[in-house]
Every structure is written in structure tokens, then in C-alpha cells.
Design a protein around this nucleic acid. Structure first.
Lengths: 225, 225
DNA sequence: TTGACAGGTATAACAACGTTATGCTTAACT
DNA sequence: AGTTAAGCATAACGTTGTTATACCTGTCAA
């Protein structure tokens, strides 16, 4: 059942031990990667319910204690997945904007966001706390989410006059985000059974499109190319 | 520690036993109420984390098995709280609309919703699945949520031409709901630490106000009194 | 070479969780 | 009275996240 032995010995110091003085080798190749991979697969397959420490350990071919040696227990696993999710959000906002109008840019971002939310529902639910009490993102994870939000702000402020104040930029970014996220969240909710029309993504884009137009009209200084 | 005995005996048949033929008395006064009250208090105080079967039973002065006699275990408790929450949402939409413009009506509803979400954060999180996998609303609970949504639809369609099709009405209701809920959900999220301005409620009302104006402009047949 | 040391691992255990099987008590009806 | 059915407490089961203990195995120093 359990694989007999791991042939190539491995050790980890990498970053968190005590002094980075003596133990300079620091390879840490297989185990940590295997654990994260197994966790990712279980997570994608069955959501957070399938993510028990023992199931991860079994799937990765390590003992339960391995989850605590290489990660910070379940919290560390969830942190890694949380950051994985936000990294995807962050990456989804890295597209070229040349030759696009302000509205096109925003709609492109919205489309990418919705696609991501659809494809990685597990990550999305984890990111948005739909995981139930039992996880609070670490400082590092919060840093990651802050980074993604800043990129969102810098994208969405193109419909504002160039010298707008930072709180206003934040407000607009939050306004757009709330709208898009609201659609995604309601889709995950029991509500989805009440809605006859199943074309969530189109409905979301349509609604947000209206709002973007309204924002452009409200802040007319925007450089609509 | 545990209170010695419950003086006044109580029995329950009420609705779910087998045949409603013989055991006609059916009082079921104290225990069930006590359990629900205890659960509500624990829930309000500490969210879903504080809601263990044993803690509820202790607080209600019954044994753990009581949670299964009177409710359907934890699922039943959460169902009751879920429906309690949706009942409040439902009630919050029961206000007089005489003498109000369409926009005023919608903003009134939005305000009530935001206030409720702020005051009963636990219920809100439970309703919107931010409870973590471990709860799926029952059919009865879903019925309740559907009822509330229908009232939302009937309120929000006042900005539509009177004879609009049902899917369009649903779409508009969902559009408004998604926006408002998006704000609430983001406020519950790690995001709240990123936002300098803490006036969530005002920001939400402002953003939604813009959108309502846009909708009114788009569907000009609405009877703006 | 020998010794000590440090770190990853396995086993087993702990506490807490939701749930249930087993009996006991008690109220209601024949 | 005697039977029946339902609520109750106790204790247990299985699973969860986490940890204490011991074992093994490399690395470095004497």
C-alpha cells in the first residue's frame, strides 16, 4: 500500500530554519513538490472537502508529518493554494492594452476574470473565504492579494482623469470588482438554481458593460481612444 | 456542571415522526426553542466556528442527542439559521413604496440589505456559502431563499416597462443583487484591509446609485413618479 | 574511524468534531 | 396494570488537524 522507501534522500532548509549560515546545501526537490502537486490535484478534483492532511499525505506518498515538515500543516497548504489562485488572477491581468479603448481593456479584464473563476472554482472559493472559518490567509498570502488588487487598480483607473486621487482609483476598482465578483459569488450560491437563464458569463458582461459606460460618462476626461 | 434534570417533561411529535394518527398532543415547547436560541446566540457571538453540536447542547442544557431528536443534527441547525437569515432578508423588503420614485425604492431596499448584512454577518456568511463545504441547504431552505428572491424581483422590476418578460426581470434583479452582494462579500474578504476608506456602505450605495441611473436610462418606460 | 548532531520520517497518540448504538426513564393509551 | 413509543444520557465510533516519541540517515568534527 504505502511505497516502501524513498530512495533519494532529501533535505530542506531553504528559508525558514534558524541561521542560514552552515546548512548551505538546501536542495529540497521531491517531497515538497509532490505534496503541493497532490494537494493541487485533490483540491481541483474535490474542492476543499477532499483536502484532508491524511489524503494529501497518502497521495503524495509521505506520512502525515510530512505536511508539517514541508508546510505549516493545513494552513500552509491552503496558503499555497490561496497564493496560487491569486497568482493566476494577477497573471490574468497581464495583457497588452495597445490599440484598445478604455472599455475594451476593462471588458477584457472582466472576461479573463470570469473565465478564471469558472475554470478554477475551487481556488476562487478558497480565495473568497467560502472555505468556512477554518482558514485565515497568512501575511504572505495577504501580500499576494494586495499585489493583485494594486494591478486591478492600475488597470481600472484608465477611465478616470489621469491625476485622480488614490482613494478614488481604489473606489472605482472596488466598484468594478464588486460587480464582477458579485456575479461569480451568486453563481456559486443556491441562487443559481433559481435563474432560468444559465448564461451567467454573458449576463455578467452585459451588466458590467452598462456600468462601465456609466462610469465613462461620469468621468469624461478619460482618454477613450 | 450539567443541570440535574429537566423538571417539566416535554415531548415532540409535531411533524416528522411516522403517522400523525395517535400521538396527537404535540406540545414540544421548551427543548426545541432552547436549542435554537442557544444556537442563535452562539452563532451570533462566534460565527459558525462556535457552533459545535456539543457546545449547542451544553448551552441549551440538553445532551448531544437532543440536537438529533429535535433537529436533523448540525444540518438541521444550520438550516434553521439559514432560513432565519433569509426570513430577515425577506422581511427587510417589506416596506411601503407609496410616494417613492423607482430609484428611491431601490435605494431603500439596498440600504436595508446592507444594514442587515452588517448587523447579521454570521447569517450572511452562512447564507452565501461562506461556511465551508460542510453545509448544503435543504429543499425547505432553498424554498425560503427562492421566496426572497422572488420578492426582490418584484421590487426591482419597477424600473422596467410593465410588461417585461420574466427572464428580463430576473436578469435585472440579479444585476442589482450581484452588485450589492459583491460589496458585502468583498468587505468580508481580506480585501477590507487594503481599502483605506472604510465607508463601505456609502461606497456601495454610491456605486449602485450610478448603476440604477444607468438602468433607468436604458429602460425609459419606467414610471418614475 | 568514531562520535555527536540535526533533520526528515513513521508510528501512535491526543483532542475535538459529527454522528449513532445502547439502554433507561417517562408519559400516554388500551 | 401493561404495553408502547418517544426523549434522554452515556458512551462509543470514525474522522479530522496536530503533535510527542522514537528511528533512521546523512553531515560534520575530533
Amino acid at each position: 500500500m504505502r511505497q516502501t522507501k524513498i530512495e533519494s534522500p532529501e533535505k530542506i532548509s531553504e528559508k525558514a530554519s534558524k541561521q542560514p549560515s552552515k546548512v548551505g546545501k538546501a536542495n529540497s526537490l521531491h517531497a515538497k513538490k509532490r505534496i503541493l502537486l497532490a494537494a493541487s490535484e485533490l483540491f481541483a478534483a474535490g474542492g476543499i472537502s477532499a483536502l484532508s492532511v491524511r489524503s494529501i499525505a497518502d497521495a503524495a506518498g509521505v506520512s502525515t508529518i510530512g505536511i508539517y515538515s514541508h508546510f505549516n500543516g493545513k494552513q500552509g497548504i491552503l496558503d499555497a493554494l490561496f497564493m496560487e489562485g491569486y497568482q493566476m488572477v494577477y497573471d490574468s491581468m497581464a495583457f497588452s492594452t495597445v490599440g484598445l479603448s478604455a472599455k475594451q481593456i476593462l471588458l477584457k479584464g472582466v472576461h479573463g476574470y470570469l473565465t478564471l473563476a469558472n475554470e478554477y472554482e475551487g481556488h476562487y472559493r478558497l480565495i473568497f473565504g467560502e472555505n468556512g472559518n477554518q482558514y485565515e490567509p497568512s501575511d504572505e498570502a495577504r501580500e499576494m492579494s494586495s499585489k493583485a488588487f494594486k494591478r486591478l487598480v492600475s488597470h481600472s483607473c484608465i477611465i478616470l482623469p489621469p491625476n485622480s486621487a488614490w482613494p478614488l482609483k481604489q473606489k472605482i476598482a472596488l466598484e468594478l470588482w464588486a460587480f464582477v465578483h458579485g456575479y461569480v459569488s451568486l453563481k456559486h450560491h443556491a441562487t443559481s438554481a433559481m435563474i432560468s437563464d444559465q448564461h451567467w458569463q454573458e449576463m455578467a458582461v452585459e451588466g458590467i458593460s452598462i456600468h462601465i459606460d456609466a462610469l465613462i460618462a461620469k468621468y469624461p476626461t478619460s482618454q477613450t481612444k
